[in-house]
Design a protein around this nucleic acid. Structure first.
Lengths: 244, 244, 244, 244
DNA sequence: GTGGTCTAGACCACA
DNA sequence: GTGGTCTAGACCACT
């Protein structure tokens, strides 16, 4: 019958310092830290990555040997990001792995968010719509601020609201399982995409508004279609950015 | 455009025995080993997964405690796959209380399985289709046996194959996240539906065949549409059975 | 303070076939099987010792090489006990270990059974005494039978009654903890003593009767003293037997 | 005088990790490691017990799950002995319900500890007495501290020493079975008595000293008599405290 | 020839 | 220099 044990493939256990290395390297590749910027301090990285300082250090040491960062000692010192000297062979390969992860995450989102949106339109209650409209207003404001001044804080602010928006739609579907799945899909999306997303969604709110209107009108098919377009658009924006 | 460290998330080092556990569990979900079959021996798994016997054992131990496999010692012994226990104490009355759970589970299945089917049609490889056809044949046979003699064993046999069929479609989508979601959705479905399902799907195989044909033809929309009809049909069958 | 980690001594794990070997060897040394007798069959030993036949065989093989038993093949065959050629060096050492175990077990019995007997005398109810008297009568009869015909069955019969007698006294103390302790002590006694005990307690019933009388009179100190004498007597009988 | 196979009992092969567990647990009961102390490191235990680190670890894991020890990682880490948790929710009202349990436990203690003390006096070695004297000194000090400042910590400190004192007497009896029984009796006593005991034994040390002197003089009857008085006294103290 | 247990030694993350 | 995890290989008991 079907497949044999062929699907059992060798397991590879990844040391923590390699995972740390990957994360920081990706951050640099995604341009989250620009040449001349300082990385977070070792102690901050310890906190963010939930590993010990030795582990962080061993990753930073590799990056330094690769020339991606440079140590400056003493007061006001730290790890400074260097201008990248492209090594296309390795980085591209890394990126391709990343791209598969992005593709998978978006397909997953597509499956669960579109269906959740359709059901939300069918079952929404009055409170759901007014909650969504409040979020629309807040996002409008956050987006304008973030566009003129893309500091970390403003970007995170927008991301938080965007997340709340999508989760509220899923909640309006009144299906716990889909709500969980949407939350899961969004978490999975953040892993490969990182902080890129959010800076670029200048037109996100146009879609958001149309979707809320369709939900308000209880027009399931329209709401679903627009959500589909929205997710597809986001995906394209990100992929084009990665092709740069 | 200052940096955001938001994309640095805590690192989680996954122990090898957990990775092994995931792989074997997935194999079981894909129906690659059927109830009564033996798993590969510990020493074979060591070879296949490239980990030590200790690591393999710690995973098998968990599966045994979960009741998915059972150990038999001595020459000719090994780990035998157990028939999944759908709680038989669950009666029709209890199912009625679970109507919301059933609705949620089917909506979840609809979202993820339909999308997975579309992608499977687009991306399927030759081996995927032949695996599915083998399962079709096996189910045909199992269904006829089960129809004439609805003993627990025969019903479970069909359920196992049915599960393997749907999981193999999800696998053909080449999207790990959707594959996980489909597995999750099917598990969630079994909880409220219990041992009832399977006895009723007399015409299941008609849909199954059309779906495989569409996947074979790489016709995504058709495959998706037929899967949607199939799931909808199953749901209606169950709900009408509940109303009796 | 007190002792250091000095009390942690090397652990030695004993293979099952050695444990089996020890048990059979002790049986032979204790004279439970006399020269010319057959040992129980391999299958019986498997049952008695709860180990596989291979394990039993490996022990029997050693005993054969030591000349303690001899194989006779074919129908009516089996393992025949040989006349012992004393090897004092080893056997004595084995015996000494055994003797310490016997001493410990009797001291333990002494502690808990004497105290239990005192409390039984103080707290006994009518039913307790009549139960004990019934057991006295039964033991009287069993002892006479066993004395004239010491087959295994008769000996076991007496042992069972004797055990019930002592346990009933412990029960009359109305202290669950002591009852458990008495049961434990008696189990511990059987391990090294084996079937020796019981064949020799010709005068056991004299003490038994005095003890019941004291309990009947609610004379705690007397009951305790007589139980102490009884246990001490049994111990001396066994030890003198071992010194032969 | 035919053979009885009754003395052949099922063989039980004791896994090495269980033997290790027993040894360490016994060490803790003997107070050889006090709350706050570190156990020897895994590698030291490997050396002491002559087993592999894996085996040691499996025993430590059990003790950790039982809450008897706690792990601290990193340099200077190790397994720290925890203060035993005498359930503090147990109040005087609950104790009153447990009066039968208290009576039983003290009778059990009386049986085994008195006998163990007599044997200890007969068989003690030089080291035993000096260990006991060291414990006396430590208890003297702990009692004075605890009397002036009855914080939980000080009380536990005294209890731990008291326990070690009684266990060391049992150990000096050179009877493993009695040692186990004493450990058992003391555990059983703690269940109903809970955290109360220890605050009240102002004069405990007077008895303790007399007992050690008698053991030193090899005066079995005196040692036993004094231990009996001591246990009786403790019991009365607790019962009067309950009547208040 | 299977699973059950143990060993000796290694590398890692941690503090 | 600690505990946490894994490896490679061995012997054993069972069937």
């Amino acid at each position: 019958m079907a497949a044999s044990k062929a699907s059992l493939v060798p397991v590879r256990q990844i040391p923590a310092h390699e995972l740390v290395l990957d994360q920081i390297r990706r951050s640099l590749e995604l341009g989250q830290f620009r040449p001349g910027d300082n990385l977070p301090t070792e102690r901050e990285l310890t906190e963010l990555l939930q590993v010990s300082r030795t582990t962080v250090r061993s990753a930073l040491y590799v990056l330094e040997r690769e020339g991606l960062i440079k140590v400056r000692r003493g007061r006001g010192g730290g790890f400074t990001v260097q201008a990248p000297k492209y090594d296309p062979s390795e980085t591209r390969q890394e990126m391709r792995k990343n791209r598969k992860a992005i593709r998978d995450a978006f397909e997953y989102r597509m499956a669960v968010e579109v269906e959740a949106t359709r059901l939300a339109a069918e079952r929404r209650r009055a409170g759901d719509v007014s909650d969504l409209r409040k979020l629309l207003t807040a996002m409008d404001h956050a987006l304008q601020v973030a566009m003129s001044d893309q500091t970390a804080h403003n970007v995170v602010e927008f991301q938080t609201l965007d997340n709340a928006f999508h989760m509220n739609i899923a909640k309006a579907s009144q299906n716990e399982l889909l709500l969980d799945a949407v939350a899961d899909a969004r978490r999975k999306m953040w892993l490969p995409v990182g902080a890129v997303f959010g800076r670029l969604e200048a037109n996100a709110n146009d879609f958001h508004e149309v979707i809320v209107d369709a939900i308000d009108d209880r027009d399931g098919p329209l709401a679903a279609a627009k959500m589909q377009e929205h997710i597809e658009g986001t995906r394209k924006t990100i992929e084009s950015w990665l092709r740069r």
